[in-house]
Amino acid sequence: MTLVDFLQLDLVPMLAAILACVTCGLLGTLLLLTRNSMMGDAISHAVLPGIAAGFWITGTRASLPMVGGAIAAAVVAVALIGLVRRLARLEAGAAMGVVFSGMFALGLLMLVWSGADRVDLDVECVLYGILETLIWPAATGPASLFDPAALAALPSELLLLAGMFAVTVVALLLFWKELRLAAFDPAFGTVIGFDPRPVRALLMLLIAAACVAAFWAVGSILVIAALIGPPAIARLLTERYAAQFLLAALAGGAIAVAGYAVAALIPAALGAAQGFNAAGMIAVMAAVGFALATALSPFRASRRRRAAASRA
């Protein structure tokens, strides 16, 4: 494997995977801390009709209408979940199960009907992402990294991911204390004039947008691993709020690199004709990372004790 090969074939997928996992890990931290992890599952499935509609309209894979469609779908999903919970008097999980599976199915049918599945956006892509196809043929050597013409030829999926990452970081910093309050004690927030609803809505919108951006990297189901794996790993390693986010970002980068390396780089280095599916391997690495962090966690003993005490 030469350097040019790496630049052309592996650099962009790896960057895309890192950006996807870091962005999702940052946003997923708030889901994890509010014990709402399965909402990530729900949204990542439910955005599919929005993605299909966006694709239908523009015919391209990484466009703003698609992000808009996904956000609209997420809004519909969240509203429907609330409605079903209230009317059928069900726990959140069941309501989510109904809404996201229904919307996912609808999205699949839209893909098939629109003929998108024969062009660019097929069902495989929904399931596994298209990490391997994010290539950068314009790269001719290290100099391309500074060559505007070559950089302009980077896949638009990568740009969407980078934009999403920047938006996420800015939003987290801007709403730092509001998000913390809404996550820890929303009722208190309401009383002191910090209504948690707009902040929560913002978080859901960001997650929906991140799901679309990350969709191309890891597919719609493995996005969940990117959303919840990194924060779960970080949660085992720290008791600090800021550190929880930093470690989640780090863990996201680590599982992306490890997953991509094990799936693609190492088999290629060993001369194998074909590697493994990188998106799948990243999800596996989330579990491996979690197992490692469990073994290394400095808080394990105290946590166990407390869990036992609260059961008693």
């Binding site: 493995l222 691993a225 999800a283 596996v284 579990a287």
Partner: peptide, 17 residues
């Protein structure tokens, strides 16, 4: 909730691999 999300996606990921 986190355990479920993690097992669901990693299990599926392993399957994809």
């Amino acid at each position: 909730d986190a355990a479920m999300a993690l097992v669901l996606s990693s299990g599926f990921g392993l399957g994809v691999v």
